[in-house]
Structures are given as structure tokens and as C-alpha cells.
Design a protein around this nucleic acid. Structure first.
Length: 586
DNA sequence: CTTATCAGACAATAGTCGTG
DNA sequence: CACGACTATTGTCTGATAAG
């Protein structure tokens, strides 16, 4: 009957294989660098090319187990530690005073090769003379350790002596150590460790001193397995294309034509500030929320125009077909026009199959760009929001950071998971959203490449390990475990982005939600609303008060709808005192 | 084993420029 | 004019080292 320890060791190696299947094969240390993907924290296992297990299939034998950040508050990363073991990549130098592993490998090399460095291992500060003298030895050590391979287990817990990493390290060492035990998987005859000056290394068969004499807790294998499964879990949580909706920002380059026409047949060019636009006899400039001669706003007219589909007399493009980049066509082919939404600076969040007229409105504030097409951050637009906010599809945003505040604003109460893809060192502020960094070298219009990749397949998106910050699983857990913080950060974001639409109207929600339950109705003058929101109501609340106070079709209706009210009536006079809106409890 | 520090490498961004 | 290529600038990260 085999010793129980043999069974545990077999189990241990089976788990290591499972780990390798998840994270890929072990890496040879001399070929590693800090720009590879490494777990932030974890436990690492070393293999040495001469060392194999004693039984079939004679796979590699673990020769060292290690971890890092065992002191509270420590914030070294696993790569930090591994790089100290590896030494200098260029000149093979190193510092055995910072790496006990280098230290003991050095003593073994000296013993085996009849070398002597009297200063080796002395803790006392090493002068530069000493370090220069030791350099050849450090290089030998780097050569030897560089041949070794490593595999890492991701254990992202807090630093501290009670960390899971410490637990796994201690038990793995105690299990594998042959110190004063019947040897299982003993070292090869030529193993360098046999020349080491540390008895614990020679006897245990490991390049370890700590824990080799201790006993192990067989239950640790279950913890070990659980940790591996957790890594697997976050990789298998893939959202398929059929379960996703995409939001992509609009683009400047549009297909030509597709103008709405005035009554006398002149094309309309939509801009952010028609009053600043140049004189042009061939067309008229208008704001999307500007008035037509028939008393409707252009936005309203556009909705009615869409209702006539498939009739399309002015030859407008569907939003998804309006822009020239093939990224939009790719998304349409893969996801379908009704699951791709365009985040347009002119119109808001528009479904891909909605017909849009040609327009010239951008968030870009670059000084050179003509001011009449620049939409200011606090400019009032009655943005469309054609997204079904009760949908549970995973919503993925692609685009530049200028559009993210609008995206967050319009999707704030979206029921499903929202993911913002970004391409910057620091994740953009997008409270309540998951963040995924897009890995690319492209600097300009990277979101087109991202769209192409998403059209091919989506698994990379949710598998991507986050080098900085939390991975997706951790982000999800944080969002779940701290919903109140999510709410708090929402309002933070509003403060943060100043007077962005949404920030101010939130005050209406706050006011209504605090009304006594017995009060079913509230009639508020514009001057009172103005005090609530800290600024006077926009011109459109006078010129189109019915539409302005409509219970849907724009983002801010939610501020009274979610408080349990709807607008029952409104009146716009000349002055704020003679204008009012009436909210009725639903 | 961990941390602090520094210089150099590298990445991100905004802006400019040339081309079709 | 739109687009990609290029550049200047800014800021961040890495790797090396020294030392706690």
C-alpha cells in the first residue's frame, strides 16, 4: 500500500497540470520579462531541467516553491520577486543579497566547481568593490537559475502573514520536502542542490529552507484546487456575441448625402451651434432640437420620418450605415443592426437601424475645429436613448473617452452588465461599469480595430487578464458586494464631470422622492425647479415645454419616473415665475 | 524578504503634417 | 476634407541597485 504522502504528491502534480492547462506551460526564467502578463500576487513553482519525478510519466519535479508579500502592507508583485531571482537580463548580474535563492544556488555552484568567494552570503553591506568581485559568480548563478522554468498560481489576496499564499507555500513545501522522510521523487544524482551548504536543501530536495521540516495539512490540496478552479472560472465566464449589445461612438467620416429637407427642398445641416455657422445659400443650418417652421422640433420630425419606414424620401442612411469605416459594417454583420447602437454627439444613443440625417456635431473640443460643430459638455441636447434599459444583455462600449460621460449617463439605469473598453494607462471614470483594457499598438481610432476583433470573436474580451487593477471577476465581485458604493460613485461622477446633463436634473429626483407619501401631486414653477437644479432651465423648456417634459424619449425623464411620478401637465410663459410643470404620483 | 529610489524606456495623448 | 503617419510632450512603468 503506497504511503499517503505519495498519493498527496500525485494529487499535487495533477493539480499543477490542471494549472498549466489554464495558464499555459511553464516559462523559462531567462526568457521572461516584466511586460509579460503576470499575476499581481501568487505562488510560484520552479522546475529545473535535470530534475524529473521518479515515476511515470517522469514529468518535471518541483525544485522550489516561493511567494512574496508575506508582510502586512507589502506590495511587491510576483514579477518583482521573480526578477530578483532571475538577475539582470542584459549582463547576467544579480544581487544574491536580495534573493536567498540566488544565495544558496551560489554556494552550491562554488562547492561543485571549487570556487571561493569569501564575501558571498555576508549580510553586511557590500561595497562596490565587493560587488564587482562577485560579479562572475552572480553571472554563473543567473545562468543556472535562468535555465529553470516557472509556473505561477494567481492568488490575489491581501498581503500579510496569514495570506492564502503563505498557506499554500508552506504546505506545498512541507509536502514535497523529503527532509527526514522516505524519499519520494528524489533529486537526480547530479542535482546541484546536493552541493548546497544548507543541509535543509540537500535533505529536502528543494531549494527551500523554510518549512521543509514542517508537516503539511492534506486539506490544503482542496484549497489549492479551489484556487485553480477560481482562475478557470473567470476564464470560462465568456459572454457570447448573441448575448451582447454594442455601443460604438460616431465618427466624423460619413457617407455623402442623406439630408433632411426643408419645405422648399433645401438640405438641412445639423450642427451644435447654428448661429455660429457660416453663411451658405445652398443649405440651412439647424440644431437637432431646433424648431421647424411647422412648430415641431427636428428631432421630433426625425422620429416621425422614421415611422414612415420603409418610405425614405430624403434617402437617409440607417445609423449603422452612415459612417464610412468598415468597423460599423462588421458589427452590423455580426451582431445585427438592432443590437448595435451609435453614440452620436448629435443625437444621443441611436439604434443601428434608425435613419439618421447627415450632421456635423462632435465632442472634440480641439481649438482648430470649427466652433459651430463642437458640442459643449454642458450643452442641452434632448438625446435619444433607444436602448431598452430593462434588457439584460451585456452592453459593451467602444470608443474614445470623450464619449464615456454621455455613455454612462444614458445607460446609468441599464439593468444588465456594462463594460467599457479603454485604451489608456489609467481606466476612465465609468462608475458601475466593468473596465477592460484593449491591447493594441494603434493610437488613433483604435476602437475600429477593437470592433473588428469583437466581430470575429468575443472571448478575448472577457479573458483578458488585467495587468493593472482588478481582473473582470474581481470587478464583478466588487460591483456585486458594494452596490451602495456603486450608487455613491455615480453621484461622484456627476460632480466630477461638472454640469453634464444628468447631474442637475438628479435634484428633481431627490426632491420628489422626499415628498411625503400622502402628497400625490406637485406643481413646481420654473423658478423653483431652477433653484433645485442650481441653474435656469434651458430655452427648450420654454419653446417646447411639452416635449421637454415628456415622460420618455430623453434621458432625464428617469429622474421623475424613477421617483414614482410622471408629468401630468406643463405650461411655459415668458418668465420662470409664470411657467410651471406638474408631477403626478403614478 | 521588502522597500525606496532613480534613470531610462516606453506608452498615451494631442497636435501637426502630407497625401489622395 | 478625411485619414493615417508622424512628432512633441507628458506621464507611467520597469529594471537595477542599495539598503532596511
Amino acid at each position: 500500500m503506497p504511503a499517503p504522502r505519495q498519493g498527496h504528491i500525485n494529487h499535487f502534480y495533477a493539480l499543477l497540470e490542471k494549472l498549466a492547462n489554464l495558464v499555459g506551460p511553464s516559462r523559462q526564467l531567462s526568457t521572461t520579462h516584466g511586460r509579460m502578463e503576470w499575476p499581481e500576487r501568487g505562488v510560484y513553482f520552479f522546475f529545473e531541467n535535470t530534475e524529473h519525478r521518479a515515476s511515470a510519466p517522469y514529468g518535471p519535479r518541483v525544485v522550489r516553491v516561493g511567494t512574496h508579500a508575506l508582510k502586512s502592507g507589502a506590495n511587491t508583485t510576483i514579477w518583482n520577486r521573480l526578477s530578483q531571482h532571475r538577475g539582470n537580463a542584459k549582463d547576467k548580474g544579480g544581487n544574491h543579497r536580495g534573493s536567498i535563492f540566488r544565495d544558496i544556488v551560489g554556494t552550491a555552484l562554488m562547492e561543485r566547481n571549487n570556487l571561493s568567494y569569501s564575501t558571498w552570503g555576508r549580510r553586511s553591506p557590500a561595497s562596490s568593490d565587493i560587488r564587482v568581485a562577485e560579479k562572475p559568480m552572480e553571472q554563473r548563478v543567473s545562468d543556472h537559475i535562468g535555465q529553470m522554468s516557472i509556473i505561477c498560481l494567481d492568488i490575489p489576496d491581501e498581503a500579510g502573514p496569514d495570506s492564502l499564499r503563505g498557506y499554500i507555500e508552506q504546505n506545498a513545501i512541507a509536502l514535497l520536502s523529503n527532509f527526514e522522510k522516505t524519499a519520494i521523487d528524489p533529486p537526480s544524482k547530479a542535482w546541484l542542490g546536493s552541493y548546497c551548504d544548507r543541509e535543509k536543501v540537500r535533505q529536502s530536495g528543494l531549494w527551500n529552507s523554510n518549512h521543509v521540516t514542517e508537516s503539511y495539512d492534506p486539506d490544503f490540496l482542496q484549497v489549492f484546487e479551489k484556487l485553480i478552479d477560481q482562475m478557470g472560472g473567470q476564464k470560462s465566464e465568456v459572454t457570447m456575441q448573441k448575448d451582447m449589445k454594442i455601443v460604438i461612438q460616431c465618427a466624423g467620416s460619413k457617407n455623402k448625402g442623406g439630408f433632411l429637407k426643408t419645405g422648399d427642398g433645401r438640405p438641412v445641416v445639423f450642427v451644435a451651434n447654428p448661429s455660429l455657422a457660416p453663411e451658405n445659400a445652398d443649405c440651412i443650418y439647424a440644431h437637432p432640437d431646433g424648431m421647424r417652421s411647422d412648430g415641431k422640433s427636428w428631432r421630433q420630425y426625425l422620429v416621425e420620418y422614421n415611422a414612415l419606414k420603409p418610405h425614405n424620401p430624403d434617402g437617409l442612411y440607417a445609423a449603422i450605415d452612415l459612417y464610412r469605416s468598415s468597423a460599423y459594417a462588421d458589427l452590423k454583420d455580426t451582431f445585427g443592426a438592432e443590437k448595435v447602437f451609435i453614440l452620436s454627439a448629435g443625437w444621443g444613443l441611436v439604434r443601428g437601424d434608425f435613419l439618421l440625417p447627415s450632421y456635423d456635431i462632435t465632442f472634440s473640443q480641439s481649438g482648430k475645429s470649427t466652433p459651430y460643430i463642437s458640442r459643449a459638455i454642458n450643452q442641452d441636447f434632448m438625446d435619444f436613448n433607444m436602448l431598452d434599459l430593462t434588457s439584460r444583455y451585456a452592453l459593451v462600449y467602444l470608443g474614445g473617452k470623450d464619449y464615456i460621460p454621455l455613455f454612462c449617463d444614458l445607460t446609468q439605469s441599464y439593468a444588465g452588465e456594462r463594460t467599457v473598453i479603454f485604451n489608456a494607462a489609467t481606466p476612465p471614470k465609468a462608475p458601475g461599469c466593468l473596465h477592460v483594457k484593449f491591447d493594441t499598438t494603434i493610437r488613433t481610432n483604435w476602437h475600429y480595430e477593437c470592433a473588428h476583433r469583437l466581430s470575429k470573436e468575443t472571448s478575448w474580451l472577457f479573458n483578458a487578464p488585467m495587468k493593472q487593477g482588478d481582473n473582470l471577476l474581481q470587478q464583478r465581485q466588487k460591483l456585486k458586494s458594494k452596490p451602495e458604493q456603486r450608487a455613491a460613485s455615480k453621484s461622484d461622477a456627476y460632480l466630477d464631470i461638472g454640469n453634464v446633463r444628468g447631474s442637475k436634473y438628479k435634484a428633481i429626483y431627490d426632491y420628489l422622492i422626499n415628498l411625503p407619501a400622502s402628497q400625490d401631486q406637485a406643481t413646481l414653477s420654473y423658478s423653483f425647479v431652477g433653484e433645485l437644479i442650481g441653474t435656469k432651465l434651458p430655452q427648450s423648456s420654454y419653446t417646447h415645454h411639452q416635449m421637454f417634459w415628456a415622460n420618455g424619449g430623453h434621458y432625464y425623464a428617469k429622474f421623475w419616473m424613477e421617483a414614482g411620478f410622471h408629468v401630468e401637465g406643463s405650461h411655459a410663459g415668458k418668465a420662470p415665475e409664470e411657467s410651471w410643470v406638474r408631477f403626478q404620483r403614478k
